[in-house]
Simulated assay, not measured.
Amino acid sequence: MAVFTEVSEDEAGQFLHSMGLGTLIELRGIEGGIENTNYFATTTEGSWVLTLFERLTHEQLPFYLHLMKHLASRGIPVPAPCAKPESAPVPRGEDDLLHTLKGKPTAVVNRLRGKSEMSPTVAHCAAVGDMLARMHLAGRDYEGRQPNLRGLPWWNETVPVVMPHLDEAQAALIRSELAYQNHIAQSSAYAALPRGPVHADLFRDNVMFEGTKEQPVLSGFFDFYFAGVDTWLFDLCITLNDWAIDHPTGRADAPRTHAMLQAYEAVRPLSDAERRLLPAMARAGALRFWISRLWDFYLPREAAMLKPHDPTHFERVLQARIAAPLLP
């Protein structure tokens, strides 16, 4: 959520007013993240998140925005995209939820209540597992179709680009793991994995809680702009790889892992194929973010407030998942 495209208060105020969202009171750029330009906007009508998309196109974005609308309509606590006023025309290349500001595809969503929990307990992990399973089931009848744009084909394209920046041991690890994941993707067990819309980036900073540390209440999932159609198991493993590990070492935290898996399966039990491939998909989730962080770290874009994440973190997570496979 860095700021790549500067938006003035006048520009934001006019834009929000044209959408019937009130008069701008405060505009603040959001620090963190590396994909899009984001601002918190407070108006006389409420609190919003204004996002200008730097990589996703007008053609790709309706999938994400209408997925959020679909999930919200089914009781999943996600930001609801703001539509154009009923009397407003829909310019070519947009739809009712997609807008344009400063030449960039743009969305406005309501700001969720609560705050992120960066030191989650077993209770937080159980709440996330429960809601992730509910989100997967709620998305089953979503008609939008778009692949995970950071899936295996992107890994195969990107590894050769980042390879010159790796030492011999890192290069050997990434080549070996990529070959392993290509092999897994061709298996009959992988073909049998249940699929549907996935979040694909459900890290600690993309979930909000109210309540107390001892009794947290999950108030929302957000930042769906890495979503796509993929295996639900991959989505679950990405989430486990952030919420249920010891961050300094990358090793699994057994109580938090058990809490998330148990809560998830209480809503949607894992299939036999999912149980077989849980260790492999945990490795896949770590590889995906190691590759993307290498790419962002060594090939950064200019932006205000941009802080690329340390890629070695997910190198450690991958090594830990290989050394101690995640079991159901």
Rank of each mutant, 00 (worst) to 15 (best):
267 V>R: 14
266 A>E: 15
258 H>F: 05
283 R>E: 10
265 E>L: 00
306 L>Q: 03
269 P>D: 09
278 L>F: 13
320 A>S: 14
301 R>T: 02
261 L>F: 08
315 E>V: 00
265 E>C: 14
272 D>W: 02
293 R>P: 09
277 L>D: 00
257 T>D: 04
289 F>E: 02
300 P>W: 09
310 D>S: 06
297 F>M: 10
257 T>S: 12
254 A>L: 13
267 V>I: 15
275 R>C: 11
309 H>L: 12
293 R>W: 11
246 D>C: 04
300 P>T: 04
313 H>Q: 13
252 A>P: 05
287 L>E: 03
279 P>L: 07
262 Q>F: 03
294 L>K: 03
246 D>V: 11
263 A>G: 05
283 R>D: 10
279 P>Q: 07
310 D>F: 09
265 E>A: 05
311 P>N: 06
286 A>D: 11
279 P>M: 08
309 H>Y: 11
285 G>W: 07
266 A>K: 14
287 L>Y: 07
300 P>V: 04
301 R>G: 01
295 W>N: 12
296 D>Y: 02
295 W>R: 12
320 A>L: 04
269 P>R: 09
298 Y>D: 11
284 A>N: 10
256 R>P: 01
306 L>I: 10
319 Q>R: 15
311 P>E: 08
316 R>P: 01
318 L>M: 11
290 W>F: 15
310 D>E: 14
288 R>D: 04
289 F>A: 01
252 A>E: 13
274 E>V: 07
276 R>F: 01
294 L>Q: 14
302 E>R: 12
278 L>P: 04
254 A>Y: 11
250 G>N: 08
291 I>G: 03
292 S>W: 11
246 D>R: 09
310 D>C: 04
275 R>H: 10
314 F>K: 00
246 D>N: 14
312 T>W: 09
247 H>I: 13
287 L>H: 08
312 T>F: 01
